[in-house]
Amino acid sequence: MYDNRASESAVTADDIKIEAKRVNVHYGTTHAIKDVDVSILDKTVTAFIGPSGCGKSTFLRCINRMNDTIDVARVTGDIRIDGEDINDARVDPVQLRAKVGMVFQKPNPFPKSIYDNVAYGPKIHGLAKNKGDLDDIVERALRRGAIWDEVKDRLHAPGTGLSGGQQQRLCIARAVATEPEVLLMDEPCSALDPIATGQVEELIDELRRDYSVVIVTHSMQQAARVSQKTAFFHLGNLIEYGDTDEIFTNPKDPKTESYITGRIG
């Protein structure tokens, strides 16, 4: 299933987009992430896999500082995007989040029109000078979200009236509308049926051309299908990180092997 990706992996640029060193996260007294070091490449899909509660989503939320919104969460360590420390006191998380888009587990369109859903980000970041500009941005984002053809005739219908898969693609379109450089996806397909999952996966593969995509997934098949790099988390530790093909065919750590063969998790 994943052997045909070997050739595509070669296209991957080798420059490092995100570099994390000795990242620790505490939720109150729980030590959720323990000394994680990882380098995430540009124009690559990186999958985080691991059993529930292993910290992969927590780590993902460190990258755009969404953990700031949780009072009890404490993040230490060094995360750099393009060499800039995102936890620097001078960094405004708002600017960071414009650069690092996020798609959530459950499709969460705003209870507004499809157009307003996509236009919201560009509006608050001042990306459009006028209505025409904004229309262009919205169309481009919806095309990139592979949902333009389905919604172009009803841009002003509520986004919440779409099907689950369409809603998730709308959320992806919303995320790319602010022209991010990194796209974080937290189990984007867990609420979708296999057909919608297939569409979103295709889309992720498309997005790889422009963005560094990080995806958290519970499905090892999905990780194998869409990613070039895979990181395996277990109990807050990063156990193994490497090329997806390597991880799935020839894991170095016995824990990884146990997980991908279905013995732990």
Binding site: R97, A98, V103, N108, F110, G121
Partner: peptide, 10 residues
């Protein structure tokens, strides 16, 4: 909804 808004940089 809050996550969605914060996620696009609000």
């Amino acid at each position: 909804i809050r996550d969605a808004a914060l996620g696009v940089g609000a």
